[in-house]
Design a protein around this nucleic acid. Sequence first.
DNA 1: CTCTTATCAGTAATGATTCCTAATAAGCCC
DNA 2: GGGCTTATTAGGAATCATTACTGATAAGAG
Lengths: 137, 137
Amino acid sequence: MIPNKPDHSKSQRLTQQRSAVLHAVEMVRTHPSAEEVFHLVRKELPNISLATVYRNLHLLAEEGKIREVQFEGDVLRYDGITGPHEHFYCRSCRTVWDIDRSLSPQAIHDVERSMKASVESYNLDFYGLCSVCRRKA
Amino acid sequence: MIPNKPDHSKSQRLTQQRSAVLHAVEMVRTHPSAEEVFHLVRKELPNISLATVYRNLHLLAEEGKIREVQFEGDVLRYDGITGPHEHFYCRSCRTVWDIDRSLSPQAIHDVERSMKASVESYNLDFYGLCSVCRRKA
DNA sequence: CTCTTATCAGTAATGATTCCTAATAAGCCC
DNA sequence: GGGCTTATTAGGAATCATTACTGATAAGAG
Ligand SMILES: [Mn+2]
Ligand SMILES: [Mn+2]
Ligand SMILES: [Zn+2]
Ligand SMILES: [Zn+2]
C-alpha cells in the first residue's frame, strides 16, 4: 500500500467557484481586487457569493497559485503571476505595472547575513506617476 | 509688505496632542501602530482620543515628519525615521527591523526609464524569520 | 448511486480607520 | 493679560474591507 503524499494544499475539491476565481485572476493583467474578481466571475457564475471569492482568493494565495499584493492606501489585490517580479504603482490612476526584474540573490543574501535571519520573500514596490498620468498632470 | 510663503503644511497649530504624537513616534524604534501610539501618548495626555492620534499620525505623515509603513497581514504602522532605508519584517513575532541600505539611484532611474514614469518613492520590504524566532523554530 | 463532508450562498460580525459635531484652546491682535 | 477667531479636540457614530457563521449543496470516493 502506497501512502498518500501528505497533502499540504488546503483546497481539496475542485469546485466551479474555485476554478473560476483562479481563472479570472490568471486571465487579467490588472492585479484585481476581490471585488473586481467578484464581478468578473459573476459573468460565468451569476450566483457566486462575494464571501466565496474572498475565501478562495485567500486559499489560492496560501497554496501559491496566485499572489497577494497590496499598495499604499489601496485594498488587497491579486496577481496571477507568481514568479518573482516587481511592481510600479501609479498614485494617480492606481494602475499596477509589472517590472520584469528582481533583486539579485546577492542582495538578498546580504540582508540575511546582516540580520542573521532567513529571508522567505520580499516586496519591491515603486510609487509615482505613470507615463499616461504624467502627461495629463 | 512681505507676502507669507504659501504654507503647504497642513497643521497650523502646535497642539499638545500633535507634538506628543510626533514625540512618541520619534522616541521608539518599534514602528508602532496607531493603537500603540495611543497607549504611549496616554501616559502623558490621559484624555487624548484615539481619533486624534489617527488624525495627527496621518497629518504628520503627509508633512513628511514621520513615515507610514505597512506589512503583509498587519495594520498600518509609523516610523520616526524618514530618511531612505529598508525593512525586515519577522512573520513570527512581527518585529520590524531597519536595514541601513537603500536602492542605488541607478536602479531607480532604470525603472523610470523603462516605465517612462516618475518614481516618487519605493518600498523594499523583506519577510522571514528573525534570528530570535529562527532559534525557537 | 450513495454517502460523507468540504464547500457554498447569504448574512451577520469584526476591526481598523474615518467622519461628525459641539466644546475647547492655540495664538494673533490690542 | 484679555478678547477673538477658528483650527483642533474628545467622544461617539459611521464606513468599508474582510472574516465568521450556518443551514443548504455538490464534489468525488467507494
Ligand atoms: Mn504583478
Ligand atoms: Mn524604519
Ligand atoms: Zn497613472
Ligand atoms: Zn521574530
